[in-house]
Design a protein around this nucleic acid. Structure first.
Length: 569
DNA sequence: CACCATGGCGCG
DNA sequence: AAAGCGCGCCATGGTG
């Protein structure tokens, strides 16, 4: 057929093909979709594959010569009455959105979709790549791989650097159609492997969240150009001032090796990095040194970080946009391109509300509340129930004579250390790290740890139990399964065992918190939600957040703070 | 030029 | 020692 497409199925003519495209997807009620791009990095769409029935599929070229059927295909993808099955929808959406921007095709529908990759992940599969799932669940191997096709293209073209554009049309089409076939059948297969209704509900919530995330991605945040510009000038001058001093001394402060060398040559003792190739010059090390050069480097780094990561990228921009990933190991969201979840509070002034105010809320001590619940620790649960400060309670046990506040009304060292001890539990930190973070002598750490364990005995035994978790996945308190890491990096066995043990402690807590916040987002999705920062939701304009947000989980009370200000902080 | 590794650091 | 879990991004230097 001469429509720049590749077809598998019973149609015998172009007219018949078009007719089937107009009807079969509605009889099936679903289509599987896969996009092909120039490369992972260059997401220019070169073709789209559709599975429209169990044994019927079509690939259309998009670039360089768009198929006559492209609009028909993208209209199906945009149709909310058909289920669209994607394998890792996140990536295909980015491709289709990019195509929409450049080629005026319709945007995909985000509301009626399915994603076997996400299903497998939430069901606790450790590897949810298309190849591995096809093999393990469908006993199917696509003999065409991207790597293989590119290798053939290299030989054919006689060039080292090739892209999918150098692969023959028919091969790309075949690979794509093999993939949509697998996607379609994996979806059918995985629908029968939900371990329980709770687990499936976690998947349904992720799917329902996607349009909410898309709306946040599309809106972005208004930039305050005056703040961006004034911060740019201020930081640039500061950075250049530090850099000039360093240049005069013959080293580049952005170059850790040179920093290490000059500090060592001035008599400082520095430990090696973990690769043992260089000297460590990170903040932990440099802040302990008595050398003004160490101070200078730290000042340079902190100003340069703000300048290059959080100010410069916004110059010449009117709004700040981001994308969200939902396929993280714990069920959290990640923000990328650009990351709006790691903006330092000091530079959040660069954002302005489109209305007159930002409204935001954050959950207070959500992870410790979850630890108290999952471990059934009565001391912790009672403290939260009675509104007793958990860190103060910890402090009274670990340092009975300590005061809550210092002489200037600031948090006392013992109070801060109590916080660190409790968080160390959630993360599984070692004695050594606790010693470094708190300044408490190393030989006193085990005693304080056991004091913590006496105060919170059930939490302690839960943590110990999780550390020795024998299975390949853990569950959040909402039933989301989270695969524990496998030793793909060939770590030494005892190092890997320790890492995995810490993940088994942390994942259920982090994952449960993520589940709560996702459910909260769905409750408030009709407000002008702009950003999620793990335990925090930021809105543009007025919102009314009721007590139901503190009762997402029937047994974990998750109170939250609210804020209304013209600038987010 | 693209891509990777390394060191470092921002957030929860 | 992946000595604290989860992320993304920046500068630098090496490689092909």
């Amino acid at each position: 057929m001469s429509l720049r497409c590749y077809y598998r199925g019973p149609a015998q003519s172009n007219e018949e093909l078009v007719d089937r495209l107009l009807h079969i997807p509605y009889q099936s009620g679903m289509i599987a979709v896969d996009t092909e791009t120039i490369s992972i990095k260059d997401i220019t769409c070169i073709g789209i594959g559709l599975q429209i029935a169990p044994d019927e599929s079509l690939y259309v070229e998009v670039w360089p010569d768009p198929s006559d059927l492209l609009l028909l295909v993208t209209s199906l993808i945009a149709d909310p009455s058909i289920i669209k099955i994607y394998f890792n929808a996140n990536f295909d959406f980015r491709v289709l959105e990019f195509l929409h921007d450049t080629d005026s095709t319709p945007l995909p529908d985000y509301t009626n979709i399915a994603d076997p990759s996400l299903m497998a992940q939430i069901q606790g599969q450790s590897d949810h790549s298309l190849d591995d799932l096809s093999f393990s669940l469908l006993s199917y191997s696509n003999e065409l791989s991207i790597a293989g096709l590119l290798e053939e293209a290299r030989i054919e073209c006689g060039r080292k650097s090739v892209s999918m554009l150098d692969v023959p049309f028919e091969q790309v089409a075949t690979k794509c159609l093999n993939d949509v076939w697998a996607t379609w059948h994996l979806w059918e297969n995985l629908q029968h492997t939900w371990p329980n209704t709770q687990n499936k509900e976690c998947y349904d919530i992720d799917i329902a969240l996607i349009p909410v995330l898309k709306s946040m991605e599309q809106k972005g945040l208004l930039l305050d150009k005056e703040v961006v510009e004034s911060e740019y000038v201020r930081l640039r001058n500061e950075v250049m001032g530090y850099a000039d001093v360093c240049t005069d001394m013959g080293f580049n402060p952005s170059h850790p090796q040179q920093v290490g060398y000059i500090l060592a040559s001035r008599g400082n003792i520095l430990p090696f990095t973990k690769s043992r190739k260089q000297l460590r010059t990170d903040e932990d090390v440099l802040s302990e040194l008595d050398d003004p050069i160490a101070k200078l480097v730290l000042e340079y780094r902190s100003a340069n970080k703000l300048l290059t990561t959080y100010i410069e990228p916004w110059r010449e921009q009117d709004r700040a946009y981001t994308h969200f990933r939902i396929d993280l190991s714990t069920g959290r969201l990640a923000s990328f391109n650009r990351n709006l979840q790691n903006i330092p509070p000091a530079v959040r002034r660069v954002f302005s509300p489109d209305s007159s105010n930002f409204n935001w809320m954050d959950y207070s001590q959500i992870e410790l509340r979850i630890l108290g619940h999952v471990s059934h620790d009565t001391t912790m649960q009672d403290a939260f129930k009675l509104g007793i400060s958990i860190h103060e309670l910890t402090m009274k046990e670990l340092w009975p004579n300590a005061k809550r506040y210092g002489s200037n009304g600031e948090d006392s060292q013992e109070y801060l250390n109590s916080k660190t001890f409790s968080f160390a539990k959630v993360y599984g930190a070692s004695d050594y790290q606790l010693h470094r973070k708190t300044g408490v002598p190393l030989d006193r750490i085990p005693g304080l740890r056991s004091a913590w364990g006496i105060l919170y005995p059930q939490a302690q035994s839960w943590v110990d139990n999780q550390y020795n978790w024998p299975y390949d996945y853990v569950e959040s308190d909402f039933g989301r399964r989270m695969a524990l890491p496998t030793n793909i990096h060939n770590m030494k066995p005892h190092v890997f065992t320790a890492h995995r043990g810490k993940c088994a402690i942390n994942y259920p807590i982090q994952g449960t918190a993520a589940d709560i916040v996702k459910r909260a987002m769905l409750k408030v999705k009709d407000y002008d939600l702009r950003l999620q920062v793990h335990d925090e939701l930021v809105f543009d304009g007025e919102v009314e957040l009721d007590e139901s947000l503190a009762r997402i989980h029937p047994e974990i009370h998750t109170p939250f703070n609210t804020y209304v200000e013209s600038k987010w902080k």
